[in-house]
Design a binder for these strands. Structure first.
Lengths: 104, 104
DNA sequence: ACTCTAATTAGAAAAATATCTAATTAGAGA
DNA sequence: TCTCTAATTAGATATTTTTCTAATTAGAGT
């Protein structure tokens, strides 16, 4: 899984909403685009970023292109984020002799 | 929780590793910096991004500054990411009459 | 073959990000 | 107070990202 591309993809609110919408099933580029106040070419670059991260796949049906969420990669991404942020893990036992002082 | 700042913070590999390291307990700016091949000022900007996202807190002890992981925000961030990517959720029942075609 | 629609690619501009060196701040200790 | 150390802020530059309009591609239908 391309953790770098995946987390870059997740760093933009429009791309996050695209993912959320695709959880309910595939949608065309045009349908997706209609929800956001940006141009279609801008949406295309967001789709490209999500494809680059393998978070979505594209499938052409005649003249329209339908995007699908790649649930496998979505789940891998969740695991990876838990691995980074620490899935309910415990701090190592404290080592003494470190004076604590005021916050900044 | 500042989802935008949090996910921006997670989008850089150095910042991700800072978080991972702080899971084992607080560390000073200098200790953290020694693990990466970038300058100290660059590390300061990464610390600032993490502080802005409330993922870490700073505490001064004399001349050194110790950074702590904010586990509360880290856990909120995990929940948020699961909410976006879909924590084991199911697709809505399929609607028919959508022809499927070749991938692109 | 023409034309219409859906979407992308091309090219450009503005904004944000990442990085560096130099300068500054802040505390500790002689 | 001077000086040393740890770290940040200032200022500059290069790169990347986001966004736009205009042009192109691709398929469907007439």
């Amino acid at each position: 899984m391309k953790i770098n591309q995946v987390l870059k993809a997740l760093s933009h609110p429009i791309r996050r909403e695209i993912i959320t919408r695709l959880r309910d099933g595939p949608q065309s580029a045009g349908e997706l685009a209609s929800n956001f106040g940006v141009s279609k070419p801008t949406m295309s670059t967001h789709f490209a970023a999500l494809k680059d991260a393998d978070l979505i796949t594209a499938e052409r049906d005649g003249v329209t292109i339908n995007y699908h969420l790649n649930t496998t990669v979505a789940e891998e991404a969740m695991s990876a984020v838990m691995g980074i942020l620490g899935a309910g893990e415990e701090k190592a036992p404290a080592i003494k002799n470190k004076r604590k002082k005021a916050a900044i």
